[in-house]
Amino acid sequence: MPRFRSAFLPSPIKGEGFFDRYAARLALAPTAVVAAVFLYGFAGWTGWISLTNSTLLPRNDFAGLAQYAKLWSNPRWLVAYGNLFIYGVCFIGFCVAIGLSLAILLDRRVRGEGLWRAIYLYPLAISFVVTGTAWRWIMDPTMGLQAAVQGWGWSGFSFDWLNDPNRAIYALVIAGVWQSSGFVMAVFLAALRGIDDEIVKAARIDGAPTWKIYAFILVPMLRPAFLTVIVLLAVAVLRNFDLVVVLTGGGPGYASDLPSRFMYDMGFRRDQLALGAASAVIMFATFLAIILPYLASELRRPR
């Protein structure tokens, strides 16, 4: 459980009416209803549907864990869930590596920092649908990057990942990293700027070279930022739907499918409501496994 703020409850003020004494609670009531119904209620509802045999419409025939058995013996789901980890590890790894490197470079008091930052961050303002559309065009084998490089004289150059079942998932990684590493840079740069200058000065007096100061002093001090970044990127991996739909369509076949797309397909296009709900429950469970330890540690962190 998070540690709750030492409850400082202001004493009522004389002359305030009934409404004002309960005003805060009344003002929060709509949001409370939203949270209770649209978040927790709906999550429970999805859970219930996953325990039935619903196909096109929800039915209330209890079927136990039949859908989960079906799910975990469905080859497409196994690929999609496995891809979550392949995509997740590569995406988070490259984002952190590139984001941290850029943050350190920018931290070296460079000229035109604002401009550099604006360039690394702009993909974040663009929707994944636009990103996917652009990268699908760039990765087009007959007219895209492959053709351009071959045209420059390197005739053996091959870059046809979208049509390669073993590589399509890495095509998603490229587009995802392009879009998100600026975010990682921004978080790390802010964290680096938050470190007391005296620490760096002391290390310099001891004669430590710059790279050692970063590797052994500053980067280890970024631990909280690492935690935040990794958790937020992991959540983004789980939520990734737009990019896979637009860039690869889960293909070739279902080689680059992800759980979010599987769920949408089963729930909304193939009349497999209960199976879709079961996949949503697994996604939710995966989400809780990531987010609950993080929220607990964040809320407990001393201010």
Binding site: F38, L39, G41, F42, A43, W45, T46, I49, P58, V235, L238, R239, F241, P259, S260, M263, Y264, G267, F268, L273, G276, A277, S279, A280, V281, M283, F284, F287
Partner: peptide, 8 residues
């Protein structure tokens, strides 16, 4: 992840 609430 909003898949959790899409169907309801």
């Amino acid at each position: 992840p909003f898949q959790t609430i899409l169907i309801p």
